[in-house]
């Protein structure tokens, strides 16, 4: 029986199997997915390699020339004669470089917040779905209550409380971590709900019974048996949540409660640029806003595509 199998189907190398997988086939046949993946990859690699890509070091005051302030895109500046591709802001900082560093921070906060939200949501969802009873009731009621508030409001609330608790001299340093904490905490519900429902389905399957039968401890069943089988939808939600987290971070920063101007994210850049919109220096706000748009859109389109491929029922 098995010899026949071995003869007909030569085992494929992992990259061959990956190339032939459904996900990859769908990727190669969805132009939108390929385009958004390309845009996302370019943006992410520019952000990661910002110190090497950026023509200027925008947060080193010694390299700044105040006379270059408000220099328009592609024109040589009055002070130094440098050409700033996307213009310069009021301090004479290169917009292109600030965008790269800002995107770096935005992406970091977004990824970290989604990581926090996913770990929290997956853990609580697994526990609620497997334990059932009053544990399930308590966790899911908390989730329901949190869902009745808009998540940006929850994030604002948590941000305010957490900021109030940090000592004033540490506030600017801690701002990034407080942001991650508040966005992550406002976004765990979706993970918990999805994981809970798939856990309830999986926990009734016989392979879990078999593990219980031989007396495997509960945490082993949860981690080794259930977790790998409920992670499929989590990947999809995480991708879509990444776009939401980046936007939430930008919103908080735009409202002035997020990343400080000394260490700006895309949201902070948009907020500072907004002051000059009516005085004609449009490039200070336009380019950060466009970058945010491209970033969020490409992540979102990737997430939508992934959802359609991995779970046709969710459509």
């Amino acid at each position: 029986m098995n010899n026949i199998q071995n003869d007909t189907a030569k085992p494929l190398a992992w990259y061959q199997r990956a190339w032939q997988s459904d996900v990859c086939w769908s990727f190669r046949h969805t132009p939108i997915a390929m385009l958004s993946a390309l845009v996302f990859l370019i943006l992410v690699s520019m952000a990661i390699f910002a110190p090497w890509v950026a023509p200027h070091q925008p947060f080193d005051p010694s390299t700044l020339n105040l006379m270059d302030g408000f220099s328009p895109p592609m024109e040589s500046a009055i002070g130094s004669g440098n050409v700033y591709w996307l213009g310069a802001d009021d301090q004479g900082r290169d917009i292109f470089s600030t965008i790269l560093y800002g995107m770096r921070l935005s992406l970091f906060i977004g990824v970290a917040a989604v990581f926090l939200a996913a770990s929290l949501g997956v853990t609580l969802g697994l526990i609620a779905g497997y334990a059932g009873g009053w544990v399930d009731t308590i966790i899911m009621r908390i989730a329901d209550i949190q869902l009745t508030f808009p998540s940006i409001l929850v994030a604002l609330l948590i941000f305010g409380v957490a900021r109030g608790l940090t000592p004033p001299e540490l506030r600017d340093q801690m701002a990034v971590w407080v942001l991650i904490f508040s966005i992550g905490l406002s976004d765990w519900v979706q993970f918990a709900r999805t994981v809970r429902s798939s856990t309830m389905v999986e926990a009734n399957k016989d392979y879990v019974q078999a593990a219980r039968l031989i007396g495997r401890p509960r945490h082993v069943i949860l981690r080794k048996h259930l977790l790998p089988n409920v992670m499929g939808p989590v990947l999809v939600i995480a991708t879509i949540s990444l776009a939401l987290a980046i936007i939430a971070e930008a919103t908080l920063s735009f409202l002035g409660v997020g990343a400080p101007p000394t260490k700006p994210s895309l949201g902070t850049l948009i907020r500072t640029g907004q002051d000059y919109l009516f005085s004609g220096e449009w490039w200070i706000i336009l380019f950060p806003a466009m970058t945010l748009l491209l970033l969020a859109l490409s992540v979102n389109l990737l997430g939508d595509w992934l959802r359609d491929v991995l779970n046709p029922k969710l459509r």
């Binding site: 399957k205 016989d206 392979y207 078999a210 039968l213 031989i214």
Partner: peptide, 23 residues
């Protein structure tokens, strides 16, 4: 005692598609 007993009792399940962890 329970652990020793468990070792001596095993089960074969109905649905061979659900009784093996797919991962």
């Amino acid at each position: 005692e329970q652990n020793q007993l468990r070792r001596r009792i095993q089960m074969i399940f109905q649905d061979p598609y659900a009784s093996l962890n797919p991962r």
